[in-house]
């Protein structure tokens, strides 16, 4: 994929119209930036794999801040949207679950969102390639080519995806979403691309829990990699061997 500077230049060369002579000058200038521009601006890096480590012992059953922050950041679950559809039809990017161990009776809570699998079943089954994994391991839906068949929702073992059941307006600029397409946690890809941590991670830290640790799983020196090496941890539905990028500890 070229960047826009190269695209513009190519078109100008091809069209050769008189009208283009004005832009030719800037086209030439832009050309010089062509090769390196994208790298400088945070292209999804295949040398990284973003992930989360969720420490259930730090997660408070009463706190819902990660879910609220996700709703605000990504614009889902607003009252105007939820009022006149059933709760089963309401969007759900991240949810809090409270679990009781059947054998010991111990109760824990943790957020569940898209687990950003290394081998995502939703990507395998998508007929058009709308369900995709970025170079940096983030799994998300390209709503531009999603046809709304919902096969990815059938395939996801975590119920991480939801379908937009009705028309919506005034979406946040950073998160376009609309009727008839499937959506899920994208690990706040627009925030990561602009060098920021995901909204849930920020909210959890602000709430004083720091139960969600964010980082690069491929970097052995990153805090998340060190923590994973140090403490026992698990993936949900480990039997499926999907190698999720979201891991749990003390569950």
């Amino acid at each position: 994929m070229t960047n826009r500077a190269e695209l513009t230049r190519r078109d100008i060369m091809k069209s050769g119209a008189a009208a283009a002579t004005v832009t030719l000058a800037s086209g030439v200038t832009l050309m010089a930036f062509g090769g390196t521009a994208a790298e400088a601006s945070g292209r999804a890096d295949s040398g990284k794999r973003w992930g989360l480590l969720i420490d259930a012992s730090k997660c408070s059953p009463d706190c819902n801040d990660c879910v609220t922050a996700c709703k605000t950041e990504n614009g889902w679950g607003q009252d105007i949207e939820s009022d006149h559809i059933s709760s089963e039809q309401a969007p759900e990017w991240i949810r809090k679950v409270t679990l009781r161990d059947k054998s010991t009776g111990r109760t824990t809570s943790a957020p569940v969102m898209c687990q950003h699998c290394e081998e995502p079943p939703c990507v395998d089954v998508c007929p058009t390639g709308a369900s995709m994994k970025r170079a940096d391991g983030i799994v998300l839906v390209d709503k531009h080519i999603c046809i709304g068949c919902r096969y990815c929702m059938m395939a996801c073992p975590y119920k991480a995806r939801s379908f937009v059941h009705e028309p919506i307006t005034d979406q946040p600029e950073q998160n376009p979403r609309g009727k008839g397409t499937v959506e899920s946690c994208n690990l706040c890809a627009p925030r990561i691309d602009s060098g920021r941590i995901p909204a849930c991670v920020e909210a959890c830290e602000k709430a004083g829990h720091s139960a969600i640790l964010f980082g690069d799983l491929k970097d052995p020196d990153s805090p998340i990699s060190k923590a994973l090496k140090q403490y026992p941890n698990a993936a949900l539905r480990e039997d499926l061997e999907l190698n999720p990028g979201v891991r749990y500890t003390n569950l």
Binding site: A5, A40, S41, D193
Partner: peptide, 15 residues
């Protein structure tokens, strides 16, 4: 669209 959405390049010409 494809550059931002699929490749994560949000700023296509940061000059």
């Amino acid at each position: 669209r494809d550059l931002t959405m699929r490749e994560g390049v949000r700023n296509v010409m940061p000059d």
